[in-house]
Amino acid sequence: MIFHKYANPNRFLKLATTIQPWAAGATGLFFVTGLYFALLASPGDYQQGETVRIMYVHVPAAWMAMFCYTAMAMAAAVGLIWKHPVADLAARSTAPIGACFTFLALFTGSLWGKPMWGTWWVWDARLTSVLILFFLYLGYMALANAFDDPARGSKAAAILALVGAVNVPVIKFSVDWWNTLHQPASVVKIGGPAIHSSMLVPLILMALAFKAYYIWVLLIRIRGEINAGKIRALRLRQVHGGPPPIAARPSQGVN
């Protein structure tokens, strides 16, 4: 399997160095074209007017919120089952990015809701689920950083990510149920906007920009985590004088 090859942090670092400039370039390219289409080259919606432009960042951010949690849970599972060190770091590095996208989905949703619904916050089923997802990210990050040994934190947080992943459908279902029970009459329920092809272009471009951004920042963060692990191993070695763990052994073999 391909990912076993990259269980070696040094081999992964080499791969990351190759991919990173491409991810950075793709992020820039998609952002510029995406923003151009979202803000200049697309018409306003006949129903929602210009506020439809908020959708071009809101919907991709909400997609990324879900995508990052799935990626995090999968990386956590790989880390737990195959003891894959890079997967552990990938899960840990995904969490802040996912939390940022979740926050953006909530924030832009609120900004969209004000002109649409007349209030900043509606206990709408989708918004509520995203809010709970945000709490799940916060819990994961708090647990991952609550231990003196970051490796131990990653492992505990990996279990939490999997428990959360099992719970996400249950939470989604219960929130939908709760929402149909408490449908306030005053709130105008707008259906998902009918996607017009002129909307599809900026939407997809922004989604691609977010995804490329995710890969780019993820690689930066994993690189930092790998090197931080090496530093910890070196410092431990200075204290105890034992042989370095495999992960910390430099590829060029200074010893």
């Binding site: 506020t51 908020i54 960042v57 809101h58 900004l111 969209w112």
Partner: peptide
């Protein structure tokens, strides 16, 4: 609605 739209893109 400029305020809402620019605030969204600004936040992002």
């Amino acid at each position: 609605h400029g305020g809402f739209i620019w605030a969204s893109y600004g936040a992002v």
